[in-house]
Simulated scan of single mutants.
Amino acid sequence: MTNEKLNELLKPLVTDLGLEFVGIEFSPSRGSSLLRVIIDAPGRPVAIEDCERVSREISALLDVNDPIEGRYTLEVSSPGIDRPLFTLEHFTRFVGSEAKVNVALPIEGRHRFQGVIKAVEGDRIHLDQDGKDVVIAHANVVKAKLVPDYAALGIGAKGARNQDSGSRKRGSKHR
């Protein structure tokens, strides 16, 4: 099953529970695949109980629909301080924030960019990479996430290396 189909299946369930469906990361493998579902709680931190509740509901839904072939691990977590950016709406929401963006097709010979999200116009993301405007088509984005501002979070550079990302996880095995 494609990520798009999994998103379509899982988003309404998470939304019905009063939470924000941020997105999924699916890593298929021969032995045991990993399905990570990322949720957020509007106006408050994600609690372990949120992850547990979503995990139970998703487990039941996946058991009925059986969209994933073979064994897999389900993990439900908060976005953490290095929040992933999946949709154009995510990029728009975080205009002014710094992000790391990996692309499939190189832009000026590069696959990785880091800079401030300046704007989103149509399906194009404008990133300020060292004072230069880099325009990235959303369809070209392989992976994107916010870069935490450790100083604003009150975490020094030394603490940043040892600091947990703040995500809460609950895993359960299936099949």
Rank of each mutant, 00 (worst) to 15 (best):
M1V: 10
M1D: 04
N7S: 13
K11G: 07
P12W: 08
P12G: 06
L13K: 10
L13P: 03
L13E: 06
V14M: 08
T15R: 13
G18P: 01
L19W: 04
F21A: 06
I24R: 05
S27C: 09
P28Q: 03
R30T: 13
S33Q: 06
S33E: 06
L35A: 03
V37E: 01
I39V: 06
D40T: 00
A41W: 05
A41P: 00
A41M: 01
R44Q: 03
R44M: 00
V46N: 08
E49R: 12
D50S: 03
D50P: 01
C51G: 04
E52L: 07
R53W: 02
L62P: 05
V64K: 15
G70W: 01
R71L: 08
E75K: 11
V76A: 01
S77C: 11
S77Y: 03
S78F: 10
G80C: 05
D82Q: 02
R83L: 00
P84T: 02
P84F: 04
F86S: 08
T87L: 09
L88M: 04
E89A: 14
H90I: 07
T92L: 08
R93I: 00
N102T: 15
A104R: 15
L105I: 12
E108N: 09
H111T: 14
F113N: 08
G115M: 02
G115S: 07
I117A: 07
K118T: 03
K118W: 01
G122H: 00
H126I: 04
D130N: 15
V134E: 13
I136P: 02
H138A: 06
H138I: 01
N140F: 05
V141I: 11
V141E: 10
V142K: 12
A144S: 12
K145S: 14
L146G: 11
V147H: 08
V147L: 13
P148E: 09
D149P: 10
Y150P: 05
A151E: 14
A152H: 09
A152V: 02
G156A: 03
A157H: 15
G159V: 11
A160Q: 12
N162K: 11
N162Y: 13
Q163G: 04
S165P: 03
S165T: 11
G166Y: 09
S167T: 07
G171W: 09
G171Y: 10
S172I: 15
K173H: 10
H174N: 14
R175H: 09
